[in-house]
Design a protein around this nucleic acid. Structure first.
Lengths: 240, 240
DNA sequence: TTTGTGATGTGATTTACATCACACTTCCTT
DNA sequence: AAGGAAGTGTGATGTAAATCACATCACAAA
């Protein structure tokens, strides 16, 4: 376990960090484990939303497809993240798709079981609310970043979020320890691959970022911050 | 169409509807009342977020200003709505401004008092989570609508949300019983006044909407739905 | 080795939307 | 009743980004 932690890319903050060890244990006790292969879907839009998912290992993207076949990536969840729709006591339906993008091990929590647990443990309920609030604020700030500062601003914001999620510091440089294609970045900001390619080219030429064996290295974080009027939000909120 | 419905200001659905009568009463017991004049601010970005607000009467807009002086309206809250940032057990700071846009009577809830109440009453905590989840999903779906379907899609989505919030049915027509300027609509979708004006003009010419003594009347809701690929979400989620 | 496939890089063109500029309307005020 | 402010409507022009159309590159599989 400690060994595992050491090999983990540094500075990864999982959203389950807002739970205490004990609370997380309680949650784990009501999970059942499942494996999902890359390419599968945990749920589709329109499916009943009655489960939470704890990503023990792997990656899941929450996406939305438009009629014209474009795809928008709303969130990317990684090892240690908890996700799922949680208006826990109301029949409701997913508005987005959950696409497994790496072979994953997932703990599934039934809403009914969660309800019971929350009833029994006030402290867990409180942490749960904290987690919900954090997720909501993450959505709000992302919304703001993608709406208000044009495509370059959206890209810079996304690069900052990627640093917060996958970044490993080397002096003043930050390596984003996650391979990303131009198309993936495009789908995260609602732009085209070509636009992203050109913007990245501009950033490289201006020596703001660089590529090191296909990983993006951020060399001038303050510049990125400036473009999207970054307010230096807490790292656990400013994520992908 | 009964007499009552006609006289009722609107088919207004308040977000506090997800609380039971008893829960709402409990919340009201820990509020202190304050009055705020149109033009004032309840909070500014950067202020500590440690209060909830219950709008007993009036209107409050949650906005974000960019460096270039543009304003983006994220939410509009009305009589009966509960709002405020609620990651209740974490020091945090507002990312948005709360601007009072009509003289208002507001119940203020201190986070500390809320904490106590949530601890004491499991059922309230549960409803509170439901409310949080609903608010989050409202943000997510708005995000989707404003990002994915261009400015016309954003406008149509906003008109639908306005129908759900302020709409009064007259046969197949829906009157949006709220005066809105082109600039206001523009700030809600991140467009310019001129663009909104032209788009509204197009919709009028196509007989999708009409103006009746300065109120917007939606004559062809299915058309609006089509443009923004509306999935017919629950009314209490699909709001302004 | 060749061939196929997914990704990157870049020019030319089109489109959506913002910006600028100004006339016109409504309604408020003194 | 006149003047002003706030809002609406609309042309002309500019610009960001999408679209289209290829060339190139990396690398895995046949």
């Amino acid at each position: 376990m400690t060994d595992m932690l050491q090999r983990k890319p540094v500075s990864q903050v999982a959203n389950s960090d807002c739970f205490t060890e004990e609370s997380l244990t309680k949650l784990k006790e009501i999970m059942y484990e499942m494996r999902a292969e890359s390419g599968n879907h945990l749920f589709w839009e329109g499916d009943t939303a009655d489960k939470l998912y704890f990503l023990k290992r792997g990656q899941v993207k929450i996406t939305k497809a438009s009629d014209e076949g474009k795809s928008f990536i709303l969130y990317v969840y990684n090892t240690g993240d908890l996700f799922g729709q949680v208006d826990p006591f109301q029949n409701s339906v997913h508005s987005f798709n959950a696409e497994v993008t790496e072979n994953s091990i997932i703990g599934v929590i039934q809403q009914k079981d969660l309800e019971v647990l929350l009833w029994q443990h006030g402290d867990l309920a409180v942490e749960f609310m904290k987690w919900m609030g954090l997720m909501h604020r993450m959505t709000q700030t992302k919304f703001r970043d993608l709406m208000m500062f044009g495509k370059p601003g959206a890209l810079c914001s996304t690069l900052i979020r990627l640093c917060n999620t996958y970044g490993k510091s080397h002096g003043s440089e930050i390596v984003i320890t996650k391979k990303l294609t131009n198309s993936e970045l495009a789908d995260m900001i609602g732009a085209t691959r070509e636009s992203v390619n050109r913007m990245l080219g501009d950033l490289k030429r201006a020596n703001i970022i660089a590529m090191e064996n296909n990983y993006i290295v951020v060399k001038d974080l303050p510049y990125l911050r400036d473009i999207c009027q970054c307010e230096n939000c807490p790292v656990d909120m400013c994520r992908i």
